[in-house]
């Protein structure tokens, strides 16, 4: 088996690092949100892989014929938890994008370094203006 049966962990870690790196290294606020999404998706995959049972089928309740062994099924709980986490992720993304729209309207840019410069200029202006 590729990755010694731990392939899903490697995928999760790779995605997680990609997401975190994007959030830290990118200056564009929209790209930062994309990084955040990749980071959150990695955790969702981590949970989904927790519920997997080797050879298990979809967990659907059914009547068993007499003598028929109960089917092996995957654990549905982590999947259900992730439905909630996806909702949280959507809300965070929506709010983040809404803030980006407001930032763009207020500053005219969504680049982190340009924003920082604008704020610093404003502060410098105010301190010299206050001293006069």
């Amino acid at each position: 088996m590729i990755g010694g049966g731990l392939l899903h962990y490697w995928v999760v870690i790779a995605l997680m690092m990609t997401g975190l790196y994007t959030m830290i290294a990118r200056q564009n606020l929209v790209k930062k949100i994309m990084g955040l999404n990749i980071f959150q998706v990695s955790v969702i995959l981590f949970y989904v892989s927790l519920g997997k049972v080797a050879g298990g089928t979809a967990p659907i309740l059914k009547e068993l014929a007499p003598g028929e062994p109960a089917p092996l099924y995957s654990n549905p709980l982590p999947h259900v938890l992730m439905l909630t986490a996806i909702v949280v992720g959507v809300a965070v993304t929506a709010l983040g994008l809404a803030l980006v729209v407001r930032i763009r309207a207020a500053y005219g840019t969504v680049e982190e370094d340009a924003l920082r410069k604008l704020d610093e200029e404003e502060r410098a202006e105010r301190s010299t203006g206050g001293g006069a």
């Binding site: 975190l20 959030m23 606020l29 930062k32 955040l36 980071f39 959150q40 955790v43 949280v88 965070v92 709010l95 983040g96 803030l99 980006v100 407001r102 930032i103 207020a106 500053y107 924003l115 704020d119």
Partner: peptide, 19 residues
């Protein structure tokens, strides 16, 4: 307008924390 930036960076940090 700095409030928007403050909220955005809190959102980034807070979501990393939550995740």
């Amino acid at each position: 307008r700095q409030a928007l930036r403050a909220a955005f960076s809190y959102l980034m940090m807070g979501t990393i924390g939550g995740t």
